[in-house]
Simulated assay, not measured.
Amino acid sequence: MKPRIIILMHYLELGGAEMSLIGLLNALDPAKVDVDLFIYCHRGPLMKFIPKWVNLLPENTAYAVIESPIAVALKRGHLGVVAGRLMAKLKCQQFRRHYPAKGDDAAIMQYVGNYVTPWLPRINPDVEYDLCISYLTPHNIGRDKVRAKKRLAWIHTDYSTVDIDVVRELPVWGAYDHIASISHDVTSSFLNAFPSLSDRIIEIENILSADFVHSRAERSVELPETVRLLSIGRYCTAKNYDNVPDICRRLRLQGVDAKWYIIGFGGSEELIRQRIAEAGMEEHVILLGKKDNPYPYIKACDIYVQPSRYEGKSITVREAQILCKPVVVTNYPTASSQIKNGVDGVIVPLDNEGCARGLADFIADTALQQRIVDYLRIHDYANTSEVEKIYSLLK
Rank of each mutant, 00 (worst) to 15 (best):
G264E: 05
W173I: 13
A210Q: 06
L271K: 14
Y295D: 07
C248A: 14
V285H: 09
R252P: 12
V256Y: 13
T187Y: 09
M281Y: 04
W173P: 14
V166L: 15
E169N: 13
P294I: 09
I201W: 05
R219S: 08
D242S: 10
G267D: 10
R216A: 06
D165R: 09
L251G: 11
S209V: 12
L288E: 01
F265S: 10
I232M: 11
Y297A: 12
L230W: 04
L208Y: 06
S268T: 06
P171K: 14
A238W: 09
P195V: 01
D177L: 06
H184R: 15
I298W: 04
G255T: 07
A258F: 09
D177S: 06
E169C: 15
V221M: 02
P195F: 03
I182E: 15
V166S: 15
C236T: 05
K299F: 04
I262K: 09
D211H: 06
E218V: 03
H284Q: 00
V213Y: 01
Y295C: 08
I272G: 07
A175I: 13
Y176R: 07
L208E: 09
L253K: 13
F190E: 12
D211P: 02
D165H: 10
Y241R: 08
I263Q: 07
R252L: 12
D185A: 14
A180Y: 11
Y235R: 10
L230A: 04
F265Y: 08
Y297L: 11
L208G: 06
S196T: 02
L230R: 03
L229C: 09
S196L: 02
